[in-house]
Each structure stands twice: as C-alpha cells, then as structure tokens.
Design a protein around this nucleic acid. Sequence first.
RNA 1: GCCAGCGUAGCUCAGUGGUAGAGCAGCGGUUUCGUAAACCGCCGGUCGUGAGUUCGACUCUCACCGCUGGCUCCA
Length: 578
Amino acid sequence: MEAKEAKLEKMRHSASHVMAEAVQYLFPGAKFGIGPAIEDGFYYDFELPRPLVPDDLITIESKMREIIAADLPFAAEEIDRTKARKLFGEQPYKLELIDDLPDETVSIYRQGSFVDLCRGPHVNSTSEIKAFKLTSIAGAYWRGDEKCPMLQRIYGVAFDTEAELEDYLARLTEATKRDHRKLGKELDLFSLHEEAGPGLVHWHPKGALMRQIIEDFWRQEHRKRGYDIVFTPHISKVGLWKISGHWDFYRDSMYSPMDIDDVEYVIKPMNCIGHILMYKTQLRSYRNLPLRYAELGTVYRYERSGVLHGLARVRGFTQDDAHIFCRPDQLEAEVTEVVQLARFMMNTFGFSEYELLLSTRPEKYAGTIQVWEDATEALRKVLEHLELNYEVDPGEGVFYGPKIDVKLKDALGRLWQGPTIQVDFNLPQRFDVNYIGEDGLEHQVVMVHRTVLGSMERFMACLIEHYAGVFPVWLSPIQVTIIPIADRHLDYANKVAGGLRECDIRVQVDDRSERMNLKIREAQLEKTPYMLVVGDKEMDTSQVSLRLRSGEDLGTLSISQFMDRVKPIIANKIQDKL
RNA sequence: GCCAGCGUAGCUCAGUGGUAGAGCAGCGGUUUCGUAAACCGCCGGUCGUGAGUUCGACUCUCACCGCUGGCUCCA
C-alpha cells in the first residue's frame, strides 16, 4: 500500500515536471516556482507573460500528451551550487531555492528540453505517466506568503488507470450534487443576501426547524452532563476585550465599535467573556468546581471577503460553546468527558470516522512554558487513555493554550472542522478567575473552551453534504407527507395527519388539487422520508399506502402499523435511510 | 485582502453593437386522477450597480458590489 502511494506520488510529481515543460514550450520566458505532488494529483506555479485562461489548459494538456508519448527519460544529476546558479540564471525563484539549500551540491532532473531543480525521485520515463487531467487555474503566493508576488498555479490530477481517474471525476460530480449551497436552496433551508451583507445567514422555516431539533438535542445532552445553559449579551463595552487581550491579538477580526452614550461597545466575537463575568459574581470554592457554562452563542467575526463560503465560512454564526472552569487536577477528567461527549454527538449525527489533532505551543503564546507543557501533557494523556489515534500539529495551538481538534470525515471522505477543545491560561490570569482552595488560599482556575458541533451554520453545511440532503428521519423537517389522491380524500388525509401530529410526528398534507403523481414527485424531490398515499381503498379500510423516498412502495398498512414502524426510527435517531 | 472566472425573469439556462428568449415556478381556468411532471391561458426582466465609448450598449471600457475556484487567513 505504501509502496503504491510512493509510486503514485512519484508519477504525480513527474507529471508536474511534464506540465512545466509544456508551459515552457508554450510560454517562452516563463519563470518557474515549485511543482510538487499533492493528494490526488499535482500542481506547478508559474510566472507567465499573460494570465492563463481555461482554454490554455487544453493546449497545455495536449502538449503534455505529446511529451508523454515521446517517452522521454528523466535523468538525475548532482551539480555544485555555482553551476546550478548559472544554470538557473534566468529563474529568480529557483535561485532563491538554491540559496536556501544547505548542501554544496544540488540535484537536478532533466527530461526532454526541461531541467528543474528537484530532489526527486521521478519515474524513469515520461511514458510512465498514466491517466491525468488538468483541472484548474488559481493564483498562489510565492512561498505561500501574502507579501510575495502571486504566481499562476495550474492544478492537475493523476492516477494509475483511466478507471481511477474516472472514479475521481465522478466523486467530484457527486460532491457538486451534494453542495450545501445548492441543496440549501433546493430544500429551502437557508439563504444569504447581497442586500443584507455577505456571510450573514437567513434560516428559512425548514432549516430553522432542523436547527431547533439539533439545538434541543444538544441542550438535553448538555444538561445530562452537568452543564449549565446560559445566555450572554451580543454587545459589550470594548474595555472587556482590552482586558482579555482580544483587542490586541484579535482586533482585525472584530467589527468596529459603536458609540452608546459616548462609550464604545463592540459585537462579541466570542462568548467566553460573559461566562467569566458570571463566574466572578461569587467567590468560588474548590468544592464548586468544575463549573460548566454552555451557550448557543451567536458571534460575529470579520472574515476576509475571499474566504466566505456558503454556511461553512460566514461572518455571523452560533457556536455551541461552553467554558469549563476547573482545578488543574480536574483538567484531564474534564477533557476526557468532553471528548466522550464529542464522540457521542458525532456518532449520533452519523459521523463514524474522524481525525484527531493535538496542537501544541505556537511562536506567539501567553503563559509560561511550564503550564503549556503540563496542559499539553494532560491533553495527550486523555487521547492515550481513550486509545484514540491522533496526530500532533506542532505550533498550531491558539496563543492562549494547546487544543484538540476533531476533523469529521463525511460520506465522501472529506474532512470538516468539527469539535475543538482548547485549554486557556490567558483569560483566567487577565480576569483574575480564581477559586478558594482547600488551603483557604486563592488559586487560578483552568479554563477550557470547547464546542462539539463547531457552529450551527458550519455543522448544518456538513450535515447537508454528508447526507446529500437525505436526512435521517429524526432530523427531517418534514417526516411524513400525506398525499390524497382526489379532493374527496382530503378529510381523511387531515384526520390521519392529526393522529400523527398527536405523536409528535412532523406531517404535512398536500391538499392541492393536483395529480398524485405530481405530489409524489415533489415530496420525492423534497426528500421526505415517508409518503402516505390515501385514496378510496385506504379510506374504506382506514389504512394508508406507504411509499419511501427510496422509491419503494410498501403497499397498504394500518396507521398503527405505520406508527410502530416509524416511532422507534425517530426515537432512536436511526441513521439508515429508513 | 490577492489571482482568475462569472453575474440575463423566483429557479435552471439560451442569446446578440440595433432597445431580450425557453423550460420550470407563480397567477387564472379546466381536469379529480393509484406511486417521480395533466391541459389551456396569463403575468413576469431598468440583462448586478454606476460611469464612459458610440448615432445606438445586455453586448465594448473602467470602477464598485456579489458569487465561484484557488492563495493567504480561520484566535
């Protein structure tokens, strides 16, 4: 398996060189950046005399096919730096790379008319590059640095066989179909408005209903686990954010203050401050800890225009936030509980696979190295005791403490930012958040910020794409649509609906004077789990005819039979389609 | 924010330097029907916004707004 991956990577990397050769041929004077293999394919960055247009991809691709057909060998060579500097004299980016290399000699690879500074390895010959396709053009900063010039990047994908390439392209098509922006419109779940401002979500009745179902479930599970659910204001005086350090560290992401009675107020970008103020309304004993304040708190953050994306990246969103105030000796147990809760939530929502990341101390940090190490160790212990696989993400912690991030894997294997658990040493110190210990002295609490869904908006996006809009019954905004065949069946349909409503089943009657076929089609497009067709036959026998959104026609059954079937599916939050 | 592309009716999309078209949706009728679209008619757009070029701009130019794909960012 690993050997196969290594071979693929070699081939993809070689494909990027072939692409560079094609570009060199088609755009004399092109300057070359870097061209690595990436997941599924490769890219190469160029500085070109003119901007690329989509049609260029076709031209470049056919030139690449020529190079591949020519069966050109890849040849490695070691040369000394001086020689290399001369060889790449016209290539400023390559010169920069050479200057950064530590050794006296550098390796280069040649194929055909193209030579590149490259560590390798490569395939033996261009003919070993199999199924590939150029996919897109993008701008990319040299060295990934905003201050550096922007180069033009061409992305491609490459696989061993045409079948695998087809498969990949089919996955892309499937992803397009599941796009939450498209489904959100089709299923009438939410909208965004240019007039209202970008990144500001309007939840339509059905989307709002789903959100309420999720939130109700969330509240219930949090109460069970000893969380206190609270509310805090959306605005507060800017002074608090100066104390917290956000005004210095985080100001770029906060909206400008507004003036109220000559005092500056800001919209909250986080919920923690309010929770701290509440904590501090009393003198806390070590016996009272841990204290867990949870809030579905709506926050507003400035996100740069280019990063906004449907519900997944917005400017106003509701975090399923909580702050745990505990003693240092409780940290491990608390984090364990949070990880368990997160796993329970993820499983309930049908995510069985996830990746865990432990992020450690970044360059800019608050607190001492000692507390960082203790807390990082506590997080590590939690993951190890729970026997979870995780990776360390060095230096990726937040300035105020280390964190555990959970990335959810959706039905297409794509990763989504899910739960996050962050230890905080900064705020307890800045706000003097203390408790009285057994020794009668004041001690600083340890604070844990955590979300288990992330934000309602992003989680909704994730759910939509994971389920492709075919939500499990317990989450479906409409669970049952009753379809009277003719108008004379309306009364009976309403009666059936009434019975189901009594049992808290979300039901609608399609009472339009339309044909049954149309009603079925529309219920189908809405992905309603159950369609109950009622006509003369059903009315006479007090039955319903059940059709599933899978298209399956289960024939007639009594209403109680239907209830017996549906109730446990809802109550147990069954994942299966039906 | 940066690079590139895009913006035509509620939605999906066609169109061209000579003042806009389809399907669906909506509305009005007719139809009362057995498991994914009945039929007829009507309504609907200052072609994202603003400026410029032109006898004339939806079409060309520029600016702005928004969206899409990337890059950077995501405490």
